[in-house]
């Protein structure tokens, strides 16, 4: 969900996706770097992201972006997350 959420802001190559996740979470969330690329490939295999080779900063990069299925999947994941968060909040808020 987090990778999809980062890519929802715009296309990016693997390192930029990881860096953006770290920046947005102020360093609290960081994908284990060795797992980042397998995860992106998994999302691509599932049709949730697509990639193309582009020149970025003079280097040939694999740039990922969300597909229509990816946007739908992200919306579903966000709905599930909201429900889960709401349930936890209800329990925690009842602590005296």
């Amino acid at each position: 969900m987090l990778l999809l959420a980062v890519l929802a802001a715009g296309p990016g190559h693997g390192y930029a996706v990881g860096a953006e996740l770290r920046r947005k979470s102020e360093g609290h969330l960081a994908v284990v770097e060795g797992s980042l690329y397998p995860a992106l490939h998994r999302l691509e295999t599932a049709g949730l992201v697509e990639s193309s080779t582009q020149k970025v900063d003079g280097r040939s990069r694999r740039v990922y972006q969300l597909t229509a299925d990816g946007k739908t999947a992200l919306k579903e994941e966000l709905d599930q997350w909201s429900q889960f968060k709401m349930c936890v909040d209800r329990v925690v808020n009842e602590i005296p």
Partner: peptide, 9 residues
């Protein structure tokens, strides 16, 4: 492709 991505990373 993986090799290129890792080297860039």
């Amino acid at each position: 492709r993986v090799a290129e991505e890792l080297a860039n990373h």
